[in-house]
Simulated scan of single mutants.
Amino acid sequence: MTNSDTTREPPRIGGSDTARPYAYDPVTQPEYFEGVLSRRLIAFCVDAMMIVGPVLLFGMFIFIFGLITLGLGWMLFWLLSPAFVVWAITYNAVTLGSPASATLGMRLMELEMRTWYGAPCYSLLGAVHAVCFWVSLSVFTPLVLLVPLFNDRRRLLHDFLVGTVVVNNAQRAAALRRQQ
């Protein structure tokens, strides 16, 4: 083995190490950020119903199953908390990792989540985003809601933590661009 073979760095995995610029500029592309905060709030409410609904149905099933089994089925109520957590993370991972890069509520509101450099969201990022959202909401409740008011891209605290940005989808942005 020669000296040049021992000093060579291993190949990098996952792309280049060059700096990437922000994909969406609120100054030159304001249509991507117009109305995002209010639409994101409505999308959150829709997604909360999509997450809480099946868990409530599971709770009603356990209750009825408990009546049928004379109380033995009620010992399954401890499963509600883990089921809620697993379902919430799975919902976000699957929907944000889809080709639309959006949850069902975000699709309804014509929003999508992108990485800060413009790549589509992927499942692991969607799951981590959900966990960071709930942790940041638990720890910094009032401050989390103030963060988007002080940045041009309207990013929340957990968006900064995981490197994402929520923007209007391409169709909505094009429609807003035509109106201007």
Rank of each mutant, 00 (worst) to 15 (best):
M1Y: 10
T2E: 12
S4C: 03
T6S: 06
R8S: 11
P11S: 13
R12W: 13
S16I: 09
T18R: 14
R20G: 03
P21E: 15
Y24C: 03
D25T: 08
D25L: 05
V27F: 04
V27R: 14
F33I: 10
F33A: 05
G35A: 05
L37K: 07
R39P: 00
R40D: 02
F44Q: 10
F44K: 02
F44L: 11
A48G: 10
A48F: 15
G53V: 08
L56E: 01
L56D: 03
L56G: 08
F58H: 08
G59K: 08
I62H: 12
G66W: 04
L67E: 11
T69A: 09
L70F: 14
L72T: 02
M75V: 08
L76P: 04
F77L: 09
W78Y: 06
L79C: 10
L79Y: 02
A83N: 09
F84H: 12
I89P: 09
L96F: 10
G97V: 05
S98D: 00
S98Y: 06
P99K: 06
A100I: 01
S101D: 07
R107Q: 14
E110G: 04
E112C: 15
E112Y: 07
T115K: 14
G118K: 03
S123G: 14
L124K: 01
L125C: 11
L125D: 11
L125M: 13
L125T: 13
A127V: 10
H129M: 02
A130W: 07
C132P: 01
C132G: 02
V135D: 02
S136D: 01
S136T: 14
S136P: 01
L137Y: 09
V139E: 05
P142A: 04
D152R: 14
R154C: 07
R154Q: 06
D159R: 01
D159H: 02
F160M: 04
L161N: 00
L161A: 13
G163F: 06
V165L: 07
V165A: 08
V165S: 07
N169C: 04
A173R: 06
A174C: 00
A175F: 10
L176I: 12
R177Y: 04
Q180W: 13
